[in-house]
Design a protein around this nucleic acid. Structure first.
Length: 512
RNA sequence: GCCGCGGUAGUAUAGCCCGGCCAAGUAUGCGGGCCUCUCGAGCCCGUGACCCGGGUUCAAAUCCCGGCCGCGGCACCA
């Protein structure tokens, strides 16, 4: 065989290593190819917990060279009312996460399809119209009776369903129920509701307004679409365990093959607020204390992005957690460690002096010193900048460093790349430039800034439910503008994202 | 209350289906050292876990039973 073994085997090895990250999908051999989907309700932006099924579904489709579908499940205009903006925000978040979908569907635009299937189902004898109120139905059930329509002819029920569609019934007056085993002790499983009536004059749907009043439930629309779209593997939260059982009956009535369902445990991000309803509530009640769904204190994808967490870090963490049914509690430390690996090589080191103390420099009569500091200690391609410090210049260091030097080192301190100084009479007096001296005396090597060429900077540090504001100065060699929106490392402080540079710099702290 | 699903170090994960190679691997954290003009990165060493109790077996993290704990569901929500 003619081939250059080295490059090929290397590529093969890398690919194997990459794909080894996820265990194989079960029952793949039962299908011709793998098709997965992510099916969010566009009633809010997605968070890290939602990203789990999205990333895993996408990743598995990619591994098996299958299809991945995005489907908006917006069939409840009344209780979980979809938000117009959310459709696009979810698309943006997914794209940002590196997820590409082959097809996209919006359920509210597919109602005629569901009606058609519903009629087929009724004619198969798989469903009946329950035209009593919820209360009466439940009472009937508790007496051990079943609804009379359950045993009526398909044609009879079809007729009633047509009446539902035509508007003969108001909200709560009729539903279509899928027949199941009657023996379930969990009553919600028995003859579950497939369609209900929603007064869309009162609760218009953002996509289709008041055009429809008969709406499919999650279990109906989702199961039908999974079949129609050829989904082979459903990856979703374990709150859907019972739904998989419900949907089994629909598949049986229709003679369809049920996809493989994988149920995921709950995902928590320690110290972050994740729940949609909780975030909504906070935003409503906090009156501007939070910047929106993208506030860095939230575990939303937007919030994490705001915080400087990269999509790659999120992806790595999700792939590590995998598709298990056990709950997982991700520590932010872990996510930060993953993120640090990614941003460290590309983050320029910038000097930020918090709560500065300003002193005049004394290098000796008329002496100027140069400090050439690279933007990155290893990545020389990021370049460097030079500071010239002459006697009489004003230089700032942080109050914490200033006080530590005075209390622990007799006022001696090493100004990074510049020299060893002693704080005397409100001045920095040069002792020597010898680094070895500083090492031997155990002096802190401290970041510093000339007052000229520095800019006021505000560093926002998200801390649980609060944000700590740290004020100080940041260097500005005119390059700050170029770093907008990027991650930087503030020397001896940590990683942060530069949010604005004019009129002063503002940054959001990422992590150490 | 009823139904269902889980339980490996602080956190996450590998191994469990197909018992022995597991006195349990990896990442992160923590402790120590080296390196470095950052408290970043890198390198080295160390730390620490199979929920409990029975059973099956020559052998159990792995199989069986019971308990405990946790989570999910019990909607005309998704």
């Amino acid at each position: 065989m003619l081939r250059t073994e080295f490059p090929e085997s290397k590529i093969e090895q890398e690919r194997r290593e990459e794909e080894k990250k996820l265990p194989p999908l079960p029952d793949v051999e039962r299908f011709e190819g793998v098709t997965t989907r992510f099916a969010p309700n566009p009633d809010f932006v997605i968070h890290l917990g939602n990203a789990r099924p999205a990333i895993l579904s996408h990743e598995y489709a990619r591994i098996y060279k299958g299809r991945f579908i995005l489907r908006f499940e917006d069939t409840d205009p009344r209780i979980k009312t979809p938000i117009v903006d959310a459709y696009n925000q979810i698309r943006e978040d997914l794209t940002w996460l590196g997820i590409k979908w082959d097809e996209e569907y919006i359920q509210s635009l597919r109602l005629p399809i569901y009606y058609k299937i519903a009629k087929d189902l009724i004619l198969n004898g798989g469903a009946f119209v329950d035209d009593t109120t919820k209360e009466n139905y439940e009472e009937m059930l508790s007496r051990g009776e079943i609804h009379p329509n359950r045993n009526k002819l398909p044609e009879y029920n079809l007729d009633l369903f047509e009446k539902m569609l035509e508007g003969h019934y108001g909200e709560g007056e009729a539903v279509l129920r899928v027949k199941t085993d009657l023996g379930y002790t969990d009553k919600s499983l028995v003859d579950w509701v497939a369609f209900r009536i929603i007064d869309t004059d009162k609760y218009p749907h953002p996509m289709v307004g008041s055009k429809f009043i008969v709406w499919p439930t999650y279990n109906f629309a989702s199961a039908v679409d999974d079949h129609l779209m050829g989904i082979t593997h459903i990856i979703r939260g374990k709150e859907h365990l019972q739904n998989t059982m419900k949907q089994k009956h629909l598949y049986e009535h229709m003679g369809w093959r049920q996809p493989v369902a994988i149920h995921l445990g709950r995902l928590r991000l320690e110290e972050f607020i994740m729940s949609k309803s909780q975030i909504k509530k906070i935003l409503k009640e906090s009156a501007g204390a939070y910047s929106g769904p993208n506030d860095p204190r939230f575990g939303t994808i937007m919030g994490l992005r705001e915080r400087g967490i990269t999509a790659e870090a999120i992806r790595n963490v999700i792939l590590t957690v995998g598709a298990k049914q056990t709950d997982a509690s991700i520590s932010f430390t872990n996510l930060a460690a993953e993120n640090r690996k990614i941003i460290d090589p590309t983050s320029p080191r910038l000097i930020f002096v918090e709560d500065p103390v300003e002193l005049v420099v004394d290098n000796g009569n008329g002496v100027c010193l140069e400090a050439k500091i690279p933007y990155h200690p290893e990545k020389t391609e990021l370049g460097s900048r030079q500071f010239n410090v002459c006697t009489g210049d004003r230089v700032m260091i942080s109050r914490a460093d200033y006080e530590q030097a005075l209390s622990e080192k007799g006022g001696e301190v090493r100004l990074m790349e510049l020299g060893n100084y002693i704080i005397e009479g409100g001045k920095f007096r040069l002792l020597s430039r010898d680094l070895q001296y500083a090492r031997e005396k155990g002096l802190s090597i401290v970041q510093w800034l000339k007052k000229d060429g520095s800019k006021i900077a505000i560093l926002s540090v998200p801390l649980g439910e609060s944000i700590v504001i740290k004020g100080g100065y940041i260097e500005d060699g005119g390059k700050l503008q170029d770093l907008l929106g990027k991650s930087v490392q503030l020397i001896r402080v940590g990683f942060a994202v530069l949010k604005s540079a004019i009129p002063f710099a503002s940054l959001v702290f990422s992590h150490e």
